[in-house]
Design a protein around this nucleic acid. Structure first.
Lengths: 143, 143
DNA sequence: GTTGAAATAAGTCCATG
DNA sequence: CATGGACTTATTTCAAC
């Protein structure tokens, strides 16, 4: 795929969507000073070119009765792709990240009680080539 | 604030918004089988009660020419709130997380080149009561 | 929950550079 | 030939009931 040239207008659109992705095309158009159609076409293009990968919602999981954890995995480096495939995935997985640092893979996992987390860790442990698991790094987004 | 009772319909709405926050109220209403007005009132209530904290966009920062890092900070535990206040904040900060585990605070930071990251680290270092800084944990979201 | 008016989004076509 | 604007139609939002 040819790499899309991003201009200042695209950046402005992305910044507005980062603040509030539910803003209407019309409102973006008013703030930027382009027609609604132009904004819509640009957003679609940004989606097509995978610069916009999706639109999401920031939830307070603690109010919903969940804890949030990041589970760090240290693994055989040449098996990373296989391992990512094998990680059990369900609604409680909010993200899986490839990282270079203390860990190789980080799983963002929400759970209602310790039991649920422990069971999930048990599943993870069954995967071959995982050397270390650093679970239960509870987090709260403060900014 | 009184804690909101969440029912199955709220959960369904949140799941749809998690998949795509730009879905229209109408489309949610069709999928759930409630009127559009009912959906709208529920979303507004979820926002008012801070269960929905915002609507965001998932961007591929690498296509935009950015690297993504998580900077882990180990700090004096009783100074955490002060430190969070003092962390320099700009458009490159995508999140600040309070954590319990390897680090006390994690900053999600995007940068175009090493120089930019280094300058930011330099700013962080000026803050009192930060004991350790673990920067440059580059990440890619794979799921 | 229904309804109707206003706002917004989507689709098409045309002009421009 | 990609982009924005103008126009038309379809859909969505929003508030009164």
């Amino acid at each position: 795929m040819k790499k899309q040239k991003i201009d200042d207008i695209d950046i402005k659109i992305l910044k507005l969507l980062e603040k509030n992705s539910r803003i209407s095309n019309m409102e973006i158009s008013r703030r930027i000073g382009l027609s609604e159609g132009a904004i819509r076409k640009r957003i679609n293009k940004l989606k097509k070119n995978n610069i916009i990968k999706g639109f999401c919602v920031i939830l307070d999981y603690s109010i919903l009765g969940y804890n949030v954890s990041w589970i760090g995995l240290n693994v055989e480096k040449n098996k990373i792709i296989n391992i990512i495939d094998e990680i059990p995935k369900d609604d409680n997985i909010k993200g899986i990240y490839l990282t270079y640092g203390d860990h190789d893979i980080i799983i963002e996992y929400i759970y209602r009680d310790k039991k649920e987390l422990e069971n999930y860790i048990k599943e993870i442990k069954k995967i071959e080539d995982i050397k270390e698991i650093w679970p239960a790094i509870n987090i709260e987004k403060v900014y």
